[in-house]
């Protein structure tokens, strides 16, 4: 674990979609899929990103939205960036025998490390990823190399037409799974949660909130009484049921609680 930010060289940058690039950093870090690191650009800002690959190098996929990520997109191979972490609780495979992995939009990055881990543990699974269009689907190899992948696009330009939740509903109607592990836009996660509840299937969802410390001390990331950076970002069904603010509210930098729509509009800046 890195406490104070350390500088790491960017060994490789892979463009994934018009708005997503994967950065490989020369920093050995071990962790669990779902955990995140704080990335620091001196003089700009520091923000949390899920790690899609741990080990001798780490990989993070960054979607261009807002000032910080625009600056990240200006970085080149051999440039450096500050890293601390990994932080938070990742996905848990304890007791899981047959899973569905779901990634929506840039949330795909947060679950991209799961297929490898599930395969290594001999856990059966199927993956579903979704995006608005064909160009926005990414990370296919991380899923296909280890198991079956169903891809969905909102406009039908590739794979199944429609939301990932449609594919999820069909699968749960056909077969029994004991855990759904997902990350994506909160509206999607809300639907995944409702679908799982209706089908008496456990889920683990990776949530997102604006963060400051990443350490569980400042509560900037709080949802009800849970700290997304420390108690999460991955929450199980039991915890999700108690989160009254999930799918509804989030906090701005001042700590003010606002509706998700206002929060997302601010996050794009």
């Amino acid at each position: 674990m890195i406490k104070a930010p350390e500088f790491a060289k960017i060994s490789r940058i892979v463009p994934e979609t018009p708005t997503v690039k994967t950065f490989y950093l020369e920093k050995e870090l071990n962790g669990i899929p779902g955990q995140f690191v704080m990335l620091w650009l001196p003089g700009v800002d520091e923000k949390p990103f899920s790690v899609s690959q741990f080990g001798k190098q780490i990989a993070v996929s960054i979607q261009k939205k807002g000032k910080f990520t625009e600056k990240c997109f200006e970085l080149k191979e051999c440039d450096s960036i500050g890293v601390r972490g990994p932080f938070g609780k990742g996905f848990s495979i304890a007791g899981v025998k047959k899973a569905i992995v779901i990634g929506g939009g840039c949330g795909t990055a947060a679950v991209a490390g799961l297929p490898k881990m599930l395969k290594e543990q001999n856990i059966k699974f199927v993956s579903i990823t979704g995006a608005r269009t064909k160009e926005e689907l990414f990370s296919q190899k991380n899923f296909q190399n280890f198991g079956e992948l169903i891809e969905c696009t909102d406009d039908g330009s590739f794979g199944k037409k429609g939301f990932v939740t449609e594919a999820l509903k069909e699968m749960l109607a056909k077969e029994k799974f004991d855990c759904v592990m997902a990350c994506g836009p909160e509206a999607m996660l809300l639907n995944v949660f409702k679908t799982c509840e209706a089908n008496s299937t456990q889920c683990q969802l990776s949530l997102e909130r604006f963060m400051k410390c990443g350490l569980g001390v400042c509560a900037q990331c709080v949802i009800d009484d849970q700290l997304v950076c420390k108690d999460g970002p991955v929450f199980n069904s039991e915890k999700m049921r108690k989160l009254s603010e999930f799918g509804k509210f989030a906090r701005l930098k001042s700590g003010e609680k606002v509706e998700l729509k206002e929060y997302y509009a601010w996050r794009q800046k």
């Binding site: 406490k3 104070a4 930010p5 704080m38 520091e46 410390c213 350490l215 900037q220 700590g255």
Partner: peptide, 23 residues
């Protein structure tokens, strides 16, 4: 802006400049 808080080495504590955010 961040970094606003991080941990110092070997259990000495934290350093912070959160800067009094308030609604």
């Amino acid at each position: 802006n961040n970094p606003t808080v991080f941990e110092l080495e070997a259990g000495t504590g934290l350093i912070n400049a959160v800067g009094l955010p308030t609604p």
